[in-house]
Design a protein around this nucleic acid. Structure first.
Lengths: 131, 131
DNA sequence: CCGTATCCTCTGTGATACTG
DNA sequence: CAGTATCACAGAGGATACGG
């Protein structure tokens, strides 16, 4: 009975399934950085390793596998010697370009804002309403 | 000498400072979900706690403080009894609406794609180039 | 109601060594 | 070159109790 009322109140805002789906794909320390590289052109394993400062062999493999499993990127093996593997955005992965670009754009303006903010001192955020 | 050549080769793709700035702000298990709620309307602490299933009091406080410190949200204390605190997007935080919406939109199409994919079996991603 | 303080868990991540 | 296999660890996150 009172339980019904509680539910009603909690329902003011609802849970977001699309958001969680996106986070499930993109979460991981290196995923976005990997995708940023693959947006520009397809890459080989060691190319990515060099381009992304600080990533370990292990983590690069892991996160590439994750992205592949989610259908975001493709992995093409060329049966040559020495072995060669190319990673690229899948067709579905292409649709993430827009997302990554949005993140980058926002980051850009955010950085500019930070510069402006540090040049002059400022009391930040914490407000007390008059009462 | 040879060091110069190595640098030249690694420079094929460059590090993305705007991306890292964005990740610094948004990384954290609950940040995006918090912002999703605050996009819709300002919220009180316990409202957020109820709306975001599974978040602990500790983490909610921590991540709200992070967002506040980055200038994304504001925290307004109403000197009443019982105490009341309202969280809302700051002016700067408003600019994130677009980002969050982009994430949600992509997640939506991603979910639809997943449905379609699971209805029929499919060999996924792993390709071997002819040789 | 809205927190802070502690302590503890566990997952993501990193380092190292070895293989097709 | 492009991985896999182990082991080890920091630090993000969770549980619980107490305070303004």
């Amino acid at each position: 009975m009172t339980e019904e009322l509680c539910k009603e109140h909690a329902k003011l805002t609802e849970p977001p399934p699309e958001i969680e789906a996106t986070l499930a794909v993109l979460s991981g320390k290196w995923k976005i950085l990997i995708l940023w590289q693959l947006m520009r052109r397809e890459c080989r394993f060691n190319e990515l390793r060099r381009a992304i400062k600080g990533v370990s062999q292990h983590m690069l493999t892991t996160q590439l596998r994750d992205l592949e499993r989610h259908g975001i990127i493709t992995r093409t093996i060329f049966p040559e010697v020495p072995p060669r593997v190319e990673y690229a955005l899948s067709e579905h992965g292409e649709s993430l370009k827009n997302v990554i670009r949005t993140l980058a754009t926002w980051g850009h303006t955010h950085l500019r804002r930070q510069q402006a903010a540090t040049s002059r001192p400022v009391t930040r955020g914490r407000k007390v309403a008059a009462g």
